[in-house]
Design a protein around this nucleic acid. Structure first.
Lengths: 330, 330
DNA sequence: GATTGACATGTAACCGGTTACATATATGAC
DNA sequence: GTCATATATGTAACCGGTTACATGTCAATC
């Protein structure tokens, strides 16, 4: 019944050849006679032979696997990123080894340690880690590509072009005649939150130096969006546009405005960042980030690096696009 | 600089012991003197030793990895399921090898083949495959646990309790005084779609035998939800409740009703299934499925099986819960 | 006909762990 | 003091591939 799976030596015996020939056929080496190749393939089929991955990676010191370390992402980002990665990986014959990592940097270290020896390289997304913690956590001998993580001179780093995205939206809001834009920032420990807030400040300075720049800090949750807008209203702050650092906060803002009876977009425009599926349903204008594209690019780049064609590490930016919907205008 | 990583023999030499002792310490075997253990641990730390996973799994024929084959899920399910799986896997010291599988059954076969020899077992979610295709695709020698897949006598199968969930919602709608409930079904090839439609029919029969049972078929997309309701209106069908087989279709239905000016829930109640994050924001009543819980359970069960404590294969149902929101009444 | 080189194939060492078995030492029973 | 037993450690074979090197064959060249 459960007879042990065929090994390369079984195939060799069955084909009347040596293991070397089998291996050569397996790896598409040259110097193999067509007849021999045929015999080998027949024997492999006859025995249902599948090479043992562990043995192979032991002798080649390659696993054809990529470790992916992602934060405990909620929402659809997770799936998006992974989808893109899987696409790129399977195209090039690699498998994805997945591990989610929680905010704790000790656990990050552990997550990556577990992967050592099982993967040829790592893709790491760690927007919540400090540069030092990150540098500590990455095994020195493993090639790695970072996504949305703190800068690091030794690794390729793929980031969202937050500056470009914010610029698009600020321009859009200003074009719609908005004069008092308030930015709801994400929590300050987060890299993208910080960049978006800075970019907002800069964009305003550049595009509308006379207008006030107001930034209040939230934590990326819809509850925080609701609460920040309530606060603004309670303070009597004047505003005709809310630009949140992500869609969830924008939705919270929308919610509060609707509850209070302030018309959107007539009185106040609302915009977010990310373009979660919900945004389309609620007519929320936002900045779309192609997360699947980022995942795909990251894996491609890592494999290129693994297979030798390695350009120097650099910081690349994935450009987002503007998605104008009902919440910012007619 | 890049000196080769330490091997178990290096550690043995450094500690003045044999490789067997190192290995015993590594695997927590008994018959090791405390002093020896200490010496070994010191040597390992001194050399920064990390055991080579490939070598280990070659000699033990265990990889401590679980293959996960998921369909090309869009939306948040993907992340949810994987989060649950990762939790259970990392708790037990396993890693997740991920592969998304597209509808094509040949590709399914390929996806699982790639994993052979690299994983100790498989978790497969294949709601779109036929029972035969599925049976074909799973390597016979690999333990596997199925999620939301066609029945199969040889594997443990974890499914959503569609019947229970539908019953909850139908009861809720009837309790709200609804008399003409229309069920928007998913596309017929899908297992859950079929079960939900059947369950709807049964629930109505059981709870309100006198009321009409109407079912129309869509394809799980919001566009299809919109279109089905338009069709119902065009046909002049009377209805005071829409119960869609998933949230996306329910959202489409909401959209159409809003456009046409039919008040929800005053005139028509709308309910979905899944409880995607959007549902909460739009006040959509729905049936909540704990996908993370399913992922977690599936992995636990697979590991139990791998490690010997194997109950017989069975069909288990994960119970959903009712989430009553604005769309079905106060 | 001898020399050369291209091509085809085989032999055996090696990758880095695990572990059956052998051996050595300590402990206790008689 | 001897023997049995438990405990601690070492030796070497083995897992299933890859590949450097050796060997063998054949056609082309002079």
């Amino acid at each position: 019944m459960a007879k042990p799976p065929a090994t390369i030596r079984d195939v060799a015996r069955h084909a009347g050849l040596s293991v070397a020939s089998i291996s050569r056929v397996l790896n598409g080496h040259n110097h193999v006679h067509p007849d021999t190749r045929k015999k080998v393939i027949e024997a492999m089929n006859a025995l249902g032979y599948i090479p043992n991955a562990a043995a192979r990676s032991l002798s080649t010191a390659k696993s054809h696997a990529i470790g992916v370390v992602l934060p405990d992402l909620h929402g659809e980002f997770f799936g998006e990123v992974v989808r893109g990665m899987d696409k790129a990986a399977s195209e090039r014959g690699y498998l994805l080894l997945l591990s989610t990592m929680h905010a704790d940097s000790r656990l990050a270290h552990q997550a990556m340690g577990t992967m050592r020896g099982r993967v040829d390289g790592l893709i790491i997304m760690a927007p919540q880690l400090s540069a030092e913690d990150l540098a500590q956590a990455i095994p020195a001998d493993l090639p790695a590509v970072l996504i949305n993580s703190p800068a690091d001179a030794t690794h390729y780093n793929l980031r969202i072009d937050n500056r470009g995205g914010v610029m698009l939206m600020v321009r859009h809001l200003l074009a719609g005649g908005r004069k008092n834009i308030v930015h709801l920032a994400g929590y300050s420990g987060n890299l993208d939150a910080a960049e978006r807030a800075d970019a907002f400040r800069e964009a305003m300075q550049m595009l509308a130096p006379d207008l006030p720049v107001r930034i209040v800090e939230g934590d990326f949750t819809d509850a925080s969006g609701e609460q920040l807008v309530q606060q603004l209203l309670a303070d009597g702050t004047q505003f005709d546009a809310i630009f949140a650092a992500n869609d969830m906060m924008a939705l919270g803002a929308l919610q509060t405005l609707r509850t209070v009876g302030i018309e959107v977009p007539a009185k106040v425009a609302v915009a977010g960042f990310d373009d979660v599926p919900m945004a389309r349903h609620l007519g929320l204008s936002t900045v779309r980030v192609d997360m699947a594209g980022i995942g795909e690019r990251a894996v491609r780049r890592l494999i290129d690096q693994l297979e030798g064609s390695s350009e120097p590490p650099a910081l690349a930016r994935q450009s987002p696009t503007l998605v104008a919907r009902a919440s910012t205008g007619r």
